[in-house]
Design a protein around this nucleic acid. Structure first.
Lengths: 360, 360
DNA sequence: CTGAAAGCGCTTACAG
DNA sequence: CTGAAAGCGCTTACAG
């Protein structure tokens, strides 16, 4: 039969109390750090608990304490290693804070709203969302219940939901800068979700900077990359299938997509990177730094962002609300590797005196 | 103030009952599929619930029903994409079954026993463990509480804890076969955890087969690869640092490690794969199939293994215990890609007539 | 089909 | 420091 038995006899604090010869309240106190109980009493209780293999029932305690020590982490996808690293970081840090991680991954049958509703049922203490699309109704639901929500790696413009993210606009600009400095004049972008703030911001910064260099908008093509390696490769295929030339430089809005694009360029179309076409990504995942890729990118400071998120969650109300900053983007860092030729000395790329951009 | 408010006024089934003009029991029934309640009554209640933004409290219901619909997934590491894919599969399937996933990742401060203790507190309905080291005490604890435990991708010999895994021994043999058929005569293994059944079995099958070919044990070196890309690369470094020749073939007990080894071989030591040294992995992660690697490997049938695990968990007691099979290894599949030259026609590799192995 | 009531296993004032 | 008791928000016999 092994571990498959379905009936169980649970040991409760009453059983432990009986064996230790104390009240049930005392047992509860013995397991509550910092509660007033004589050391010898506690030891006696702990000993009895050990004998009975007693484990406190967190579900019951959650019910009485009205909070569950469970934090929901809602992920859009795991096909991007960036989110895997993020999940890992949250899981570890949350554990250190004595919290458990309830992981939900979105799918066709579960959108963000449903996921929130789900985790709300479990009285989670907080929710960390790496996927936007938060409806106003859900925001209000969480707010009414006093459950803090923090968006990780995105934000909702003009809302007062906390968002933690790096400065994607200036990150996009950095990439454009690098390409321009290396002499690129035609570009392709592989984007993420059309309505995701992260993708939009990176694109915006990139395009802005390119236009400032006096290059026409028509020199920038754009394809959705589905936030995955395969999507990145497929974007290159689409471009080629449409009969277009491979551009001077390709910006993958996320490293995975840039990696997929690189492999398609090299292995399907015989292009050399960066000799024939430059590539850059965004995120700074370790996978992009491996020798076959050596991807130039903008690194997101994950550790810092995770810490910031945890601060905003304000567990145990350690900080006053006024101390909590809202939507302060953290700067990304340019990582020069091998997929964009680095100018010998950092000459600023040209900024057109009268950019066409400002004319439009 | 946004979503940071810490005080909350919870809407309970009593509030809904009051608004709908029914008893609290009726509200509970309205939210319990299959319970006897008039359709019009249910609609009235659901309408009232909507007005009040009522969400049933799963914590309370878990307490009364004595089960939580939460399933624990305990992971040793996320540095191996195989486990990321596994986690994703479980998360999705569990969601379909109406269960939530509590993810725990092990660390220095949290071993398997502690993790089990932790999730037991949350009255999880089942635990899926991708990391062994299960103490007898924990096995008993779970058993006494009627909580099914399934080991994924490993097993505990001579225990009656369910284990779902692929046939690692014969998988190891397949890899050895491939190497031998391609003419390799000296080998290196990059292993996982010393005490993990998975690593041990793959190593055993591999070594067995090599010895059967009449090759001495001394022709096989072995290094721990820490279950990660970096560990795989480091294993090659160790071998070289110890002054040894690069062998004919390297078996990474997991694809990630094989990939790390490949990159070290090619980019640090200027070796060509497979011309100078063959490499093979195990797991069949999609990452290994990407063009820069084209890693030959043994694919584990993850989908099948996940399904099998969920069957063994036997949610809602759908099956009789006798129907549940224990420790039936699922066959892995050889995936020929580019890192081991494939013999023109599948000639069986030589088996020595009187293998040294059988003499020892 | 519906309601009143007991109970799930804790925590936490309250009184001593 | 300790115990008796109320209460957290549900589910589920039980009776109607």
């Amino acid at each position: 039969m092994g571990t498959m038995a379905k009936k169980s006899i649970r040991t409760t604090s009453f059983d432990v109390a009986a064996l230790a010869g104390v009240s049930q309240s005392a047992v509860s106190r013995a397991f509550t750090p910092g509660s007033s109980i004589k050391a010898t009493t506690r030891d006696k209780i702990l000993e009895a608990a050990r004998k009975l293999n007693y484990v406190p029932n967190s579900i019951a305690s959650s019910l009485t304490k009205n909070r569950s020590s469970i934090v929901a982490v809602i992920l859009g996808t795991l096909s991007n290693p960036f989110y895997v690293h993020t999940l890992h970081a949250f899981s570890q840090e949350l554990q250190k804070l004595g919290r458990q991680t309830l992981t939900l991954t979105l799918s066709d049958t579960m959108d963000t709203d449903e996921a929130i509703l789900k985790v709300l049922q479990y009285q989670v203490e907080a929710v960390i969302l790496t996927s936007a699309q938060l409806s106003t109704r859900m925001i209000n639901l969480c707010h009414d219940r006093g459950i803090p929500v923090v968006l990780f790696n995105r934000y909702i413009p003009h809302s007062d939901v906390y968002g933690v993210r790096c400065d994607n606009v200036s990150g996009g600009r950095m990439v454009a800068d690098a390409f321009l400095a290396a002499g690129a004049r035609s570009f392709m972008m592989i984007t993420g979700e059309a309505n995701g703030s992260t993708s939009q911001d990176r694109v915006r910064g990139f395009v802005e900077r390119v236009l400032e260099a006096g290059i026409p908008r028509s020199a920038i093509s754009s394809y959705p990359g589905l936030r995955s390696y395969e999507g990145g490769a497929a974007a290159v295929d689409m471009h080629v299938a449409a009969g277009h030339e491979i551009p001077d430089a390709i910006f993958g809005i996320a490293d995975v997509m840039a990696m997929g694009a690189m492999d398609a360029l090299r292995y399907r179309y015989g292009k050399r990177v960066p000799e024939d076409v430059m590539v850059a990504g965004f995120d700074g995942i370790p996978e992009g730094g491996r020798p076959p890729y050596q991807l130039t990118t903008v690194r997101q400071p994950v550790a810092e962002m995770v810490t910031e998120t945890l601060n905003l969650l304000n567990f145990d109300g350690a900080r006053e609300p006024e101390e909590l900053t809202r939507d302060r983007p953290i700067a990304g860092e340019m990582i020069w590797r091998a997929t964009v030729p680095r100018p010998a000395r950092a000459e600023p790329a040209p900024v057109a005196v009268a950019p066409e951009a400002s004319a439009g």
